[in-house]
Amino acid sequence: MTDKALSITQVSKDRGKARVLDDITLSLAPGQRVALLGHNGAGKSTLIKSILGLTSIHVGTIRIGDATPGSAQARRDTAYLPEAVSFHPALTGREQLTLFAQLSGSKADVRGLLDRVGLGNALDRRIGTYSKGMRQRLGLAQVLLGQPKVALLDEPTSGLDPISRQDLYAIIDELAGQGTAVLIASHALTEVEARTDRIAIMREGRMVADDTLNNLSALAGLPIRLKVLASANPEALAAELGGNRINGASVELLCSPDDKMEALRRIAGLGDAVADVEMTPPKLEDLYRHYAQEEMQ
């Protein structure tokens, strides 16, 4: 018995000559929410499909709890939302979800689930008449069937409007709250930044980062950005502080987390010459750029 909901150990996969997964190691504890980031073609969807046993791996092991991918136990314990999910257009939302409930063997409240994702009014309409976002919600509803140990969501927010995205993250939190480990492949950095516990970044099939946002920031040593607004003479201020002039009246300084207080003291020491100071810690976007592009140039 392991305490991990999902563990991936040194997994590699080749497609023809190309290595699409290269020595990937990643694990999720129950209730953990992990964002899986990476450029197009980095291998996120491939990794998710190999966790599901839909595509084979050549080296390494994957375990869902104690079960191997594709085994009956693993299929019962995983929920999946494919990227660009779609269904048979002739079925209604209710019929499609009923099928999934029967397949998963769970006594589900189909109507309640569809209400939960905001499809209560459309449950007896053909899926062919649904909008893209409505299909995405239907996909989400089937994730909530049963009590999965692991939920694998491949770009779950694509096609969703801002309110629906909020709802989606509320649902993810709910899943995590009941002990489901959630892996979210996404390109929406600002969203996952606030709503996940850990960030994993892939580049060309390799896992180049896997830690909390704070630790990744420290590790990357990315500078903090200080924007100083001059009250009268930006030229003199820029010369004094040694930063770059931006948009006429401001000066921008970059400093490491360790030098932050020192820089602030120097700015405070300038007295009336400074009208305002704005401080921006590194964002996930900067981190992402750092990890996903490093060595690429």
Partner: peptide, 8 residues
């Protein structure tokens, strides 16, 4: 892919 992720 979704269908095959179910126990059937």
């Amino acid at each position: 892919s979704l269908l095959l992720s179910y126990p059937a």
